[in-house]
């Protein structure tokens, strides 16, 4: 076996989840793939518990378009899509030197964009709070 390029593209969690779901549905007749079944099951179980479960290609594209003016790099945008932040603190973690690159106003705008395109992120938080109280 030969490796041509060990990193030819980044995939978002959503893309991986869709691909694995397709694989899982189409595989019933084939019984010879023990390891594949294990890893797809475990990976799907992880991904389906992340916010990507409720994303759509349209909402991701629209969100990326809306984030364009902020001059974020590719991996930062990927992280924003994979684990949509809900607080300024999370933005600070995901975006390098966010204090210098983004004003407080802009951070707020980014959060608003995320909530606008992935409204379920916010809802999840509310549920957690209810459970705790």
């Amino acid at each position: 076996m030969e490796i041509i390029s060990s990193n030819s593209a980044q995939l978002s969690n959503y893309e991986v989840m869709k691909h694995l779901q397709k694989l899982k549905d189409g595989r019933k007749k084939d019984k010879r793939q023990g390891q594949l079944a294990t890893i797809t099951y475990e990976t799907l179980r992880y991904l389906e518990n992340t916010p990507c479960n409720q994303q759509t290609p349209e909402s991701i594209v629209a969100c990326l378009k809306a984030l364009e003016p902020f001059n974020l790099n590719k991996s930062e945008k990927l992280m924003l899509i994979n684990s949509p932040p809900t607080t300024a603190l999370e933005i600070q973690l995901m975006i390098e030197e966010s204090e210098e690159r983004l004003t407080e106003e802009q951070v707020k705008q980014v959060l608003d964009i995320i909530i606008e395109h992935f409204p379920h992120v916010q809802k999840q938080d509310d549920n957690e709070e209810v459970e705790e109280s």
Partner: peptide, 10 residues
């Protein structure tokens, strides 16, 4: 978190 790797094999 996930990437695509290009590989070749016989």
């Amino acid at each position: 978190m996930f990437i695509l790797a290009e590989m070749k094999n016989v």
